[in-house]
């Protein structure tokens, strides 16, 4: 993939898979967390806060802050930073 934020060298990524974000297919690699795959594609904002409707994205990256939660495969509020991508994974409202 061109122009994304994946670093080359040091490691070879896993098999390429496809995830579906708000209906749009996005390539990712097995082993990547969903948060990493989204950031690699340049998506910093992941959701809108319920009260003040402000943008939020990954913050702690280690599963503690719950800022990166997204609806994943119909399950609400799953931590993107702790969830490995899977082929066909659907993110967002269907």
């Amino acid at each position: 993939m061109r122009n994304d934020r994946r670093l080359t060298g040091y490691v070879e990524r896993g098999r390429q898979v496809q995830i579906v974000v708000d209906g749009v297919p996005l390539p990712a690699f097995e082993g990547e967390s969903l948060a990493a795959a989204l950031l690699a594609a340049g998506r910093r904002a992941l959701r809108t806060s319920p009260d003040r409707a402000e943008p939020r994205g990954m913050y702690c990256g280690i599963g503690l802050c719950f800022e990166c939660v997204l609806p994943i495969d119909g399950q609400p509020a799953v931590r993107a930073c702790q969830t490995p991508v899977r082929d066909g994974m659907r993110i967002g409202t269907p």
Partner: peptide, 9 residues
């Protein structure tokens, strides 16, 4: 790095 990644060096 995740188990799915290969680490040549």
């Amino acid at each position: 790095p995740p188990g799915e990644f290969r680490i040549p060096d």
